[in-house]
């Protein structure tokens, strides 16, 4: 019974519950993306991720040619609390089965 209830998907956040302890992809505002293991979340989509890789995409304009330069900056953080109001989407890990 309990396990059936645990695995039922009735609303969007149920899919996130099934991603607990799995690596997920999170797209955030201001051109940021995270990949990390989901350790906690709440109804606001506040989250704690572990072993996180953040990718920031920025467009700079060259001072002389005025050309757009697309730059991606990567960094790793062991544990990160992410405030939910910046989250655009969460993608659960792809299952091959």
């Amino acid at each position: 019974m309990a396990s059936e209830e645990e695995s039922a998907v009735k609303e969007p956040l149920d899919l996130i519950r099934l991603s607990l302890d799995e690596r997920i992809y999170v797209k955030l505002r201001s051109d940021r993306e995270l990949r990390g293991k989901l350790h906690a979340y709440d109804q606001h989509l506040n989250m704690i991720l572990g072993d996180v890789e953040e990718v920031v995409t920025s467009i700079e304009i060259d001072d002389e040619t005025y050309e757009e330069i697309v730059r991606t900056t990567k960094r790793n953080v062991p544990f990160l609390f992410v405030r939910g109001d910046g989250v655009i989407l969460v993608s659960p890990p792809l299952r091959t089965a």
């Binding site: 304009i61 001072d63 040619t65 005025y66 050309e67 757009e68």
Partner: peptide, 9 residues
């Protein structure tokens, strides 16, 4: 200026 030059380019 930087913004407007960019638009012209």
């Amino acid at each position: 200026l930087k913004g407007s030059m960019r638009k012209r380019m």
